[in-house]
Design a protein around this nucleic acid. Structure first.
Length: 892
RNA sequence: GGGCGAAUAGCUCAGCUGGGAGAGCACUUCCCUUACAAGGAAGGGGUCACAGGUUCGAGUCCUGUUUCGCCCACCA
């Protein structure tokens, strides 16, 4: 037996969809709607969810990712594509290790005390809890992803993919191990990649330090911001063409404190203008100096330990923290008279992305990926259009980074992550990189093997995500069918960390592009424009879970989807979420109206799924709304095809509220309240037809609200989530023009009533000459009476008028003349003034149009349609003006 | 040092291929009318940052300037 939708029997009077979100989600999932249809002939549409950090808490960044990806997924599912959205989570090496270490520290336990194996066990134990939390939070956003395919970057399959990728790169010599200068986080105790260093401008000091020649007869002064590295100096460098120092090049100087002799060298990297033009060279602690060290064959002296305390090379400062050492060293120098000068200086300082500790450039043995050979095809794939980036401007950023790419340090001195699959023979020293754990050394046969201690950068496994989640390296049916995936959707802040690396590794490992389209969304900021962070005082206001609690999922989703354009940041405004909650309520109430007017057998109004032809409808207002709806479908299709989700959403909003509710529903009331006339029956069919279709269009944005309402309305099919996307149908220009006139007329009358303080309840009289519009207005006279509050027996409608009432307000709407004899209320002087103003306005408009048309260039060069529009305008305005003048004359 | 983005109503933002400036919130007046007060009706409010240019026509395209934000870069 088919499981029933978990909804109350009756449609509630108030909007309470948030109360059924959970049940609906569960129902969707249990019905299997999130899985791709099992039909090989269908086109596929695939998205890989950017895996959230397993320790993460859902924030607005996740919420926007979820909203965009779910909207795309639902849209394509309704289009009939075999749609797959693959979810998963990231083990997030440093981040997770830090979190668990902190948890353990609460009980006074350190990672070192536990030892590697036990600590990793401990993290795994935590992982389940964390994973549960984050995935539940994601579910709460309504994500329609296939949880049966959920993956975790450290699970067996993905670990195998990581190892396979590593070994392949190793065998192609694209991975190498060596001693180089890397960024080191002393707090995390690991190397980090260039990308993981965040530079910030800080005010600091530039210390001028004097270095003497061994005989203490000559000296040179160098400027440094990091005096604690002095003990690692192995040269002083000047520019080769610096005349001030020519005589010193090649001479020896003595490093303060450690009294080591170094040479003065000449190198073009030195800027003559900066400081004294002489620079201390510390190849083991500075990127520029490192390069110089290589060029000049200098010694590399590391003066710090892993935790950035000074090591034995720092002489008397051994054991001191780098900044304590700095202070003490400066004191010593000052005392010796060799601290010549101190200047203020603003320079950028690198910090660890994860813990914000000042990173230390440091020489160290690490594993690297050779990037240039990988970057080349990745550049080509975007250049030749195989991969498209939206918005396009990020293409240049992608190019710039890849064109100047440097090797990627992938080893981390952590315990939580994929261990590097390399073993060292303790007997012969051989290095063994292998898919399987080796037991004997292939060179000497020794069984004394030791695996490399390091783990891989988290982003290494993320880089394989689009295909590792589909079963790679095995040629699984999923990989066969769903790879390459369709869209890679993520924030622009991780274009280098993740997106570019996926392209490179995807091309290298699978020989194919990993995805066709890269869609980058903007970052969410708080209302005052700051980056939303947990430390913010009013951070709770930007907690998606709390927002959802207060307003529901759909309003938040709709807000996130319609508040910005691709790639642009957005400031989330809660008043907007509230407004969209009101929108959801509006749809609910409108649907209640429709449902409540269908009578005892609503099923007979079930839409067939085929587009209605407005030309075949009897009522002009029906023709109008159907025509407008068809234009909406076409417009939404167009916008979605170019990823303009925001604009499409706004169009649906405007149509539903501003046209369907404000005008169509109001107009149908007249017919519906007449009873079961043929006209009423047609209205019901059209109401359902348009509402059903619009709910479909809105479903990707507001899945819960639309699914719920849809079930109460007569419908075909088992669930909206798997219902078909609306078809485009013919518009009807004539109906739209007629209705536009009616709307303008009603607004004009309402405006006049308001201006003359006619009580809202009072029904007034109206005398109308319809001219060409007479037939239409006659057909719709009851609607007109109802909307404009004209008394039943006091509407005089004819084609022309023999005589018009003196004491009456005058409205001229296109060809329609309308007089409102408001008797005692009408003040002829005031009326003259009002009409005079209107006439003046029309004159100005006519003058403007005539000006345009008298310009030969405009007439010749502008498109015919634009010129014609101006001509039509003049005709229309002149007709109106004529009538106004006539009326003004008759008032005298 | 290079690059990118933003600048539109009091606030938050749209304005997609250049053809008479829009929404939500806030504001004013009125209305609890049988879908909806989470609502309805009618309003007020903008030299589209500035200066040039292209064009018959520029919020939209080009150049420059200013302010803010971001990214990249071996600024000792």
């Amino acid at each position: 037996m088919k499981r029933k939708v978990p909804l109350p029997e009756e449609m509630a009077k108030t909007y309470d969809v948030p109360n059924v979100e959970k049940a609906l989600y569960q129902w969707w999932e249990e019905e299997g709607y999130f899985k791709p249809v099992d039909d090989e002939s269908k086109k596929t549409f695939v998205i890989s969810m950017p895996p959230p950090n397993v320790t993460g808490i859902l924030h607005l960044g996740h919420a926007i990712t979820s909203s965009v990806e779910d909207a795309l997924t639902r849209y394509h599912r309704m289009l009939g594509d075999a749609t797959l959205w693959v979810p998963g989570a990231d083990h997030a090496g440093i981040a997770t290790q830090n979190v668990v270490e902190r948890e353990l520290a609460k009980n006074g336990i350190s990672r070192q005390e536990l030892g590697r194996e036990k600590f990793v066990q401990e993290v795994w134990a935590w992982k389940d809890e964390y994973l549960d939390r984050i995935t539940n939070q994601q579910r709460s956003m309504g994500v329609s992803c296939d949880w049966s395919r959920e993956r975790f970057t450290l699970d067996d399959g993905l670990s195998r993919a990581v190892r396979e990728a590593f070994v392949r790169l190793y065998e192609k010599k694209l991975i190498y191990r060596g001693q180089y200068l890397v960024n080191w986080c002393p707090r995390c105790g690991t190397a980090i990649s260039d990308l993981e260093v965040e530079h910030e401008d800080e005010t600091a000091h530039l210390w001028y330090v004097r270095y003497w020649t061994p005989d203490h007869t000559e000296s040179m002064t160098v400027a440094t911001t990091r005096p604690e590295t002095i003990m690692g100096d192995t040269a002083v460098a000047v520019h080769p063409e610096d005349e001030r120092y020519q005589h010193m090049i090649g001479k020896e100087l003595v490093v303060p404190v450690v009294n080591r002799r170094i040479k003065v060298i000449a190198d073009e990297a030195v800027e003559k203008e900066f400081g004294t033009g002489a620079v201390k060279v510390t190849p083991a602690h500075d990127p520029t100096d490192y390069e110089m060290g290589l060029r000049h064959g200098l010694e590399f002296i590391n003066v710090m330990n892993d935790d950035s305390t000074m090591n034995e090379n720092a002489g008397k400062f051994e054991g001191q923290d780098r900044f304590v050492c700095r202070k003490n060293l400066l004191d010593d120098l000052r005392e010796a008279g060799d601290l010549v000068k101190i200047e203020d200086l603003t320079h950028s300082v690198g910090h660890c992305q994860r813990c914000h500790t000042i990173a230390e450039p440091r020489i160290s043995t690490q594993w690297f990926v050779r990037m240039k050979p990988l970057a080349k095809p990745a550049l080509e794939a975007v250049r030749n259009g195989s991969i498209k980036i939206i918005p396009e401007r990020f293409t240049k950023i992608y190019f710039d980074w890849l064109e100047n790419i440097r090797d990627w340090c992938i080893s981390r001195q952590l315990w939580w992550g994929h261990r590097i699959p390399v073993w060292y023979c303790q007997n012969c020293g051989a290095e063994i990189c292998s898919r399987e754990d080796p037991t004997v050394c292939p060179k000497c046969g020794s069984t004394n093997l030791k695996q490399d201690e390091d783990v891989l950068d988290t982003w290494f496994s993320s880089g394989l995500w689009p295909f590792s989640t589909l079963g790679w390296p095995d040629q699984t049916p999923d990989l066969e069918r769903f790879y390459p995936i369709s869209v890679m959707e993520t924030g622009y802040d991780i274009i280098f960390f993740w997106v570019a690396r996926m392209v490179m590794l995807g091309l290298e490992m699978t020989g194919e592009i990993p995805f066709h389209t890269i869609y980058l969304h903007g970052l969410v900021r708080s209302e005052d424009g700051k980056k939303v962070s947990k430390s913010m005082e009013d951070a709770w206001r930007y907690d998606p879970l709390l927002i959802v609690q207060e307003y529901g999922v759909d309003p938040l989703r709709f807000t996130l989807l319609t508040s910005s354009t691709p790639g642009n940041d957005m400031k989330l405004s809660l008043s907007r979420v509230e407004a969209n909650r009101n929108f959801a309520n509006k749809i609910w109430q409108a649907s209640r109206f429709v449902l409540g007017n269908l009578g005892d057998d609503p099923g007979k109004y079930t839409p067939s799924g085929d587009p209605l032809d407005p030309a075949k409808l009897d009522d002009a207002i029906d023709r109008w709304i159907v025509s407008r709806y068809h234009s909406l479908v076409a417009e939404v299709n167009r916008l979605l095809s170019v990823y303009q989700l925001g604009e499409a959403g706004r169009q649906i909003y405007d149509f539903l509220w501003g046209e369907f509710c404000d005008w169509y529903i109001e107009a149908t009331k007249v017919r519906l309240y007449e009873g079961e006339t043929p006209a009423a029956e047609q209205a019901k069919n059209v109401l359902i037809y348009v509402l059903d279709g619009t709910l479909r269009l809105l479903h990707p944005y507001m899945p819960y609200t639309t699914e719920t309402i849809w079930h109460y309305l007569p419908h075909q099919g088992e669930a909206l989530i798997v219902a078909s996307w609306p078809q485009e149908g013919p518009p009807n220009a004539n109906a739209e023009a007629n209705m536009d006139a009616l709307i303008e007329l009603v607004r004009g009358i309402r405006n006049a009533r308001s201006e003359y303080d006619v009580e809202p309840g009072r029904k007034i009289a109206a005398i109308i000459a319809g001219h060409e519009m007479t037939e239409f207005l006659t057909e719709q006279q009851n609607v007109l009476k109802s909307l404009a509050r004209i008394a039943d027996d006091r509407l005089m409608l004819s084609e022309t008028l023999d005589q018009v009432p003196q004491k009456a307000l005058t409205l001229v709407i296109g060809t329609i003349e309308c007089y409102l004899p408001l008797a005692d209320l009408v003040d002829l002087d005031r009326e003259r003034e009002r009409l005079g103003k209107e006439a003046a306005q029309l004159e100005a408009e006519i003058e403007r149009s005539e000006g345009l048309l008298s310009n030969e260039k405009f007439v010749n060069k502008a498109p015919e349609a634009v010129v014609q529009r101006e001509r039509d305008k003049i005709a229309d305005y002149q007709e109106r003006l004529g009538r106004l003048r006539e009326r003004l004359g008759s008032l005298d």
